[in-house]
């Protein structure tokens, strides 16, 4: 999981801030090849360490950076794959929220070696949810916030997403049809 987060952070920093900043991060992180391979294994905790370095280099709180990485993963047109995989979660935004619990098991079908975080969703009231995520990676909770925020937008839902007590994310869905949902074809067009 560290590898996937590191690669996402790399793509986000490269696309948003340019190669000079990413070079600076890699230099401080002792990564002379300046690239993290999503299919290789890295020491557990490395993603958080490099995230902290990126926060220093970019002069922004690390929480904001991981949230942006989550949003970037869903909204970047070059990486439509992530958004599509998440949209397979369901027809509506609340279907999608419920599917988050199944996501680690689904991801493991495609990538058995993946140490996916545990995701727990509680429906605490009508249109009110609490989302928890257990992982050795601190940043992942924030990535999830970014992902959920961007997916709400994708489904056209208006919601209030906040961090509650004990690192739990609270989601209040205010309007499920606030805007037009972005188009989604079940099968990706050929080519």
């Amino acid at each position: 999981m560290d590898a996937l987060l590191l690669r996402s952070l790399q793509n986000y920093v490269l696309d948003t801030f340019g190669s000079a900043k990413w070079q600076e991060v890699c230099c401080l992180a002792d990564q002379p090849s300046r690239t993290y391979e999503p299919m290789l294994r890295y020491a557990p905790g490395l993603a958080d360490r490099v995230g902290d370095i990126a926060a220093r280099v970019l002069g922004r709180p690390v929480e904001a950076i991981w949230e942006d990485v989550g949003t970037y993963l869903v909204t970047n047109p070059d990486r439509e794959g992530v958004r599509r995989l998440l949209r397979f979660g369901g027809v509506s935004f609340s279907d999608f929220l419920h599917s988050l619990e199944e996501l680690p098991a689904r991801a493991k079908l495609a990538l058995p070696s993946l140490e996916a975080p545990e995701v727990i969703l509680d429906e605490v009231g009508p249109d009110r949810f609490e989302l928890r995520c257990r992982s050795h990676i601190r940043g992942i909770q924030r990535v999830l916030i970014g992902v959920v925020t961007a997916m709400a937008d994708d489904y056209g839902a208006l919601c209030l997403i906040e961090t509650g007590a004990e690192d739990c994310i609270t989601i209040a869905v205010l309007d499920t049809r606030h805007a037009m949902a972005k188009a989604f074809d079940l099968a990706r067009p050929e080519g």
Partner: peptide
């Protein structure tokens, strides 16, 4: 299991693509 099949097909395709790219690098 329509969504599951499609999810697997696309997830599998991205993993294969990443592995191919990794092999080239």
């Amino acid at each position: 299991l329509v969504r599951e099949v499609l999810f697997l097909a696309e997830a599998n395709a991205s993993v294969t693509n990443e592995l191919r790219a990794l092999n080239l690098r």
